[in-house]
Design a protein around this nucleic acid. Structure first.
Lengths: 270, 270
DNA sequence: TCGCAGCCTTGAGGCAGATCAAGAACAAAG
DNA sequence: CTTTGTTCTTGATCTGCCTCAAGGCTGCGA
């Protein structure tokens, strides 16, 4: 199943424990201790969780001189696999999926990203994966050569990239573990808990969360078919662990049970 | 659907001649253009491929003042999951596996590492995975606080860490793709080709390569059982694609066929 | 040279999840 | 409200890989 090429255009709105890590949320832990400051990047609106967090006012001015804010519609691509990697993006609103395509057309969702996450940073010349919106949203984009200049001027920025990258790597390894060792229900449970935590960490109160990804998206992320994902979700519903609110709302009623299933404390010999 | 300047277009079914990155070998491409210098780190012996490559002589002196060289036996752990992350390691000889354990005891091999690879770098306080030798070898270890000092003194070093980290991340994503979308034979084929390439890149001529990992190790890496790995290898042997030399020697006779299977050009609708 | 321990191979059978198929719930537009 | 297209759910069947089991190599040490 291919996504139809989005209808909308990207609009540039001019200058304005060991706990298994959440595989959906590479910025987890990066936001701790940053406070709930009213001190928000004027241009991009997500300073508190994103790239710009450690920068001072002068650096922010510097940075915002070149960054651009764009509105993106559901299904729009932010960039495609193979595109020249000219820009680095911060997702400031909405949810996106990252996809990788094989030569024979098989496709896999390698991750989801939320408000505050960084997208498309690579030292290579091309994007190794594509990024598409699942919801309406906004991104803040910055020219890559400009970023390199900023690295030189503000070393703390480069260090932040390194820390984010290591976090993402750890999250990828957790996902590898899940794909290699978890059964279908364990994977879906872990995914739902991760999704809820990612939204809570962004100030979403719950108990009802958005689930903008389709069963097919989730399946491609978890290495399952959409039918298997659906069956797992139905099973959780019948056990009273979750409640569905329309197609894109989900409520975690018994989160403990989901966590138990999804964190590898399973029935195997301990 | 384009960016204001718009380049790339959606290439859903046929990505540009993009080669799947070798999931075993995060340093691939990092060694290009470094030359075959006789200029080797006296203390650690792997400057040409490892961490120290971009450093000048003064910096090397600086670094070697604190680094320690250790010999490790097969099955020795270099560090364990959960250990305080005091040191960063460069594997200078031999082959190691990285493992991650779940609370219920399930275990997964999340990667293999070879001479020149970096091990155990994390901004966290504990190692998120363990590292064990498969062969005899040596590692060069450096205190982490010392590394932080070196970062401040030689910014190029930090940049190198960032580049390595992004490479590793891309390799992890390829592995995720393989675990989610490849069948058993495709995974084993991709693994064998990766292994051969990793050894060739380190000057091993072939055509017979070491295979120090057991079938069980390979299975835990690929999300398969050891029997399934064995059956795949037997199938390749019967097709004349490979030849085995004892338990730890393997010869790729028909590498093209293995690459075809292992790179996602499979029989799916193209 | 022999014996032993660890690893590998191969077979038989079962099961989790894929595949195929039909219909129901939902959302957006007329 | 009805229509229409999309997404989700559920059932029936199939299959690739896992599981369990037995035996064969290989390499090392006595």
């Amino acid at each position: 199943m291919k996504w139809p090429e989005g209808h909308g255009e990207l609009r540039a709105t001019r200058p304005p424990g060991q706990v298994i890590m959440n595989p959906l949320d590479a910025t987890r832990g990066m936001m701790d201790g940053l406070g709930t400051e009213a001190n928000v990047c004027v241009k991009c609106g997500s300073r508190s969780i994103g790239l710009c967090a450690p920068l001072d006012v002068a650096a922010l001015d510097d940075m915002s001189g070149e960054s651009e804010r764009l509105t993106v519609e559901p299904r729009d691509a932010i960039f495609h696999q193979g595109d020249p990697a000219r820009y680095v993006y911060t997702l400031t609103e909405g949810m996106a999926r990252l996809t990788r395509v094989l030569p024979d057309g098989r496709q896999s969702v390698i991750g989801f990203r939320f408000a505050g996450d960084l997208l498309g940073f690579t030292p290579g010349s091309e994007h190794a994966f594509g990024a598409e919106m699942l919801t309406r949203g906004t991104v803040c984009r910055l020219d890559r050569r400009r970023l390199e200049q900023l690295f030189r001027r503000y070393p703390v920025l480069e260090r932040r990239f390194l820390d984010l990258c290591v976090k993402e790597l750890a999250a990828s390894q957790d996902h590898i573990l899940a794909l290699g060792r978890f059964n279908a229900e364990e994977r879906v449970a872990a995914f739902l808990v991760s999704l809820a935590e990612a939204q809570e960490r962004r100030g979403r109160p719950g108990p009802v969360f958005d689930l903008p990804a389709t069963r097919a998206d989730i399946g491609e992320f978890l290495g399952l078919t959409l039918e298997t994902v659906s069956r797992a979700i139905s099973a959780f519903r019948k056990r009273g662990w979750i409640r569905l609110h329309g197609h894109s709302g989900i409520e975690l009623v018994d989160r403990e049970s989901l966590i138990g299933l999804g964190s590898g404390e399973g029935s195997c010999a301990a």
